[in-house]
Nucleic acid binder design. Sequence first.
DNA 1: TAAAATAATTAGACTGTTCTGTTTATATTA
DNA 2: TAATATAAACAGAACAGTCTAATTATTTTA
Lengths: 193, 193
Amino acid sequence: MGYKYNKEDILNVGYDVFRRNGYHNVGINQILKESGIPKGSFYNFFESKEDFAQQVIRQYGETNTDWMKDFFEDCSLSPVECLKSFYSMMMNLNEEDEYSGGCLVNNMSVEVGRQNDLIGSEANQHFIGWLNVLASVIEKGQKSNEITKDFTPLELAEYMHAGFYGVLSRTKVTRNRIYMDIWLEMTFKFIQS
Amino acid sequence: MGYKYNKEDILNVGYDVFRRNGYHNVGINQILKESGIPKGSFYNFFESKEDFAQQVIRQYGETNTDWMKDFFEDCSLSPVECLKSFYSMMMNLNEEDEYSGGCLVNNMSVEVGRQNDLIGSEANQHFIGWLNVLASVIEKGQKSNEITKDFTPLELAEYMHAGFYGVLSRTKVTRNRIYMDIWLEMTFKFIQS
DNA sequence: TAAAATAATTAGACTGTTCTGTTTATATTA
DNA sequence: TAATATAAACAGAACAGTCTAATTATTTTA
């Protein structure tokens, strides 16, 4: 029989709270309240707020990479349709969430990515991991002549995903999915060969 | 002879500090220290930190809109080349700044755009103002058959500028301009007819 | 296997600092 | 003189993080 609390549960609460409220706007007390653990337990598991945030990003990044890999492996459509379907799903999730969160990695990158090396590089690392997953799908699309060969898979992935984050961020103030929908249409019109 | 301090000077300090450090990470005391004004004067001019931030965004938004209008009016190149030149300049500024700031409006949108209606809508409003300036240039490009007519000027502006913000945000963690350069190349390859 | 020792976790009160914003008093300008 | 600006002290809440102690789990020893 283990102990009462475990790191993973606290990290999941942290993911939720940080994603919705940002980093500096969230106090440790809020994490404690929402996860129901006392302060002593928190500092038993984590060195500091910074350390905690880094681990939150790491867990989310790894989980999401695995999820993306599975999604594209299980997708039986063409590479382009798989990518469209992936982004549509992301957009639906964001809409269901009333555009309140966006992506934790993007939010953290923008808010503290430059001030805090630990958090910044952790966020960048996982972003690159996702790009590699996307690039492998794009490469397939290039081989089947669906996607332009004017740029490398990684260049296209970087272009596409950074652009997606751009429109995703926009929805935080527009609170409207129309711009995301147009983005999807335009992007896939552009990258097809 | 006027009074010792004026609102505009304090707003400029606020712009600089907020852009580099974000909103919640900055205390009023830091603004006071860097602008040299005492707290009493600050609260004489501004109702609250929130009110101050809103006015900072407003001033920056208006100034930048004017600046953009002038830039495109004075630009003697073709619409596409003017747009390229505009984004190149933005990228150069960001590089000179060692990728430490990004755009205040984007930063604020991502960090507090969803929690704070006042700041969120102020940021959105000015973003839309910029889009309109860009859209009028794009429209010229469509009329001279430089730019695709598959989408409206505003749709293209939204796509382009949100995408630019996406890559701009990326530089906060990559600290490398290469992705911005590729973005520029790709975007203008895509939108040309 | 049972008792003893050690290690890890849980618990929350507490510390010193910083936060936004107020208040009161004085100085400046019109 | 009347309105506004400046100045600094002040208030109360919130901040990250520490501390001591109690409890629970695990390992060691008899």
